[in-house]
C-alpha cells in the first residue's frame, strides 16, 4: 500500500515515487513506543504552521 501513497508533483493524485520503491515498506518498530508523544507535540493546525514558517535567507 505504501507504494501507492507517495505523491510526486503538485497534484493531489498520489503516484509512486521512483526512489521510494527501494524501501517502501516502513519499519517503524523503533518509534511505536513514542508515537503518542509525537502526536501530542504536533501542531493542531499543521497547515497554518507550515505556511507561517517563513525565514529570511542567511549564509
Amino acid at each position: 500500500m505504501s507504494n501507492q501513497i507517495f505523491g510526486k508533483g503538485p497534484g493531489d493524485k498520489p503516484e509512486t515515487s521512483e526512489t521510494m520503491k527501494a524501501f517502501s515498506k516502513p519499519n517503524t518498530k523503533g518509534i511505536d513506543s513514542i508515537l503518542d508523544e509525537i502526536d501530542s507535540v504536533l501542531e493542531k493546525n499543521a497547515e497554518e504552521f507550515v505556511k507561517g514558517f517563513i525565514q529570511k535567507g542567511g549564509q
Binding site: F6, G7, P10, P14, E43, A46, E47, F49, V50
Partner: peptide, 13 residues
C-alpha cells in the same frame, strides 16, 4: 502524501 501539511509539519517540528 508529501503535499500534506501534517507531513511537512513533522519535517519542521
Amino acid at each position: 502524501v508529501f503535499k500534506s501539511s501534517i507531513l511537512q509539519s513533522i519535517d519542521i517540528k
